[in-house]
Nucleic acid binder design. Structure first.
Lengths: 161, 161
DNA sequence: TAAAAAATCACCCGAAAGTATGAGGCGTTT
DNA sequence: AAACGCCTCATACTTTCGGGTGATTTTTTA
């Protein structure tokens, strides 16, 4: 009896299969006289067993097993103060609050490296005027008026290393 | 082309089915001469399409649809490293190697704070020209040509915070 | 697909930064 | 005392920055 209970599902599947085959066997003879009966028969089997497969898989791979993998992680930021040689991690939150675009951040980090507008323009393959525009916009967003100030603020906000 | 991309999966299924039917059709003739060929054929179809069904369902009813209902939130603490209030210690050795004078260091640190020459001059009660001279000299000693570079280098050398 | 946001470029102008050069005062070092 | 380094200041000149305005193109988003 224990065996029966433990393998309940398996037995149901087996019986279902047997019944299906039986039904198909019955149809087999009735359909033999019809044109293309074989194709129809094969198609029926295909369809039925596809459905069976779908049903089977939904039973077997029940949500439980799937969900354990895709549990949503809720990230809680916890401030940890450390010292020593910092491997820089961009402060995403602060970065977003500044409203800086990716390009502006790029320019900003090059400014911090001590490059002139012309040098930045060359290294990014754009005109100096474009860099000037970026610089002006980024100054506005950081609320500063000089590149040294911009670097200062950006470092304080952990936007650049 | 967009149609192709959007219905990629559908097309794959259709092609797979077609190929399966083709294979089965080929086997059909070869197996006709064998005893119980029909049963074997039907069985093969059944098996293949069961597998197809399983595969199909796993693709179609992807975790997404199931999980939205049973989404679980898992709280994970993520350490976020924040530039803590670093207690700066001047690198005496590096400082001496630069040959910078005390006054020059003073000017340098004000430059790093984002002050203009005029502002530095005012805060040190000297003329702008004096500051310019200091700046020029300190650039020479640090082997740079721009204040942003000077700040970069000085920070790297731990001469300024 | 229309609207919004980014990225691109240009031109002008004034302010700031940077270069070069010279020079006077002041304390220490030889 | 002469030499040296440092701080101070000035003048003159060049280059770079930064502000303002306007426009086009590309990308993203609603």
């Amino acid at each position: 009896m224990q065996f029966l209970r433990k393998n309940k599902m398996l037995i149901i599947y087996a019986v279902s299969l047997a019944i299906l085959f039986l039904l198909l066997k019955l149809f087999e003879y009735k359909l033999l006289i019809i044109d293309h009966s074989f194709e129809i028969y094969a198609g029926t089997i295909a369809l039925l067993f596809t459905l069976l497969g779908i049903w089977l898989s939904r039973k077997l791979f029940s949500p439980k097993k799937i969900t354990t993998i895709i549990e949503k992680e809720k990230i809680v930021e916890k401030e940890v103060f450390i010292a020593g040689p910092q491997h820089f991690v961009l402060n995403q939150k602060a970065f977003e609050e500044t409203d800086l675009s990716a390009r502006e951040l790029e320019v900003l980090s090059l400014i911090a490296k001590g490059l002139s507008n012309q040098e930045i323009a060359s290294s990014l393959f754009v005109s100096v005027n474009t860099i000037k525009t970026h610089v002006t916009n980024l100054f506005y967003k950081l609320e500063v008026t000089r590149r040294t100030q911009a670097v200062e603020k950006a470092k304080k906000l952990s936007i650049i290393p």
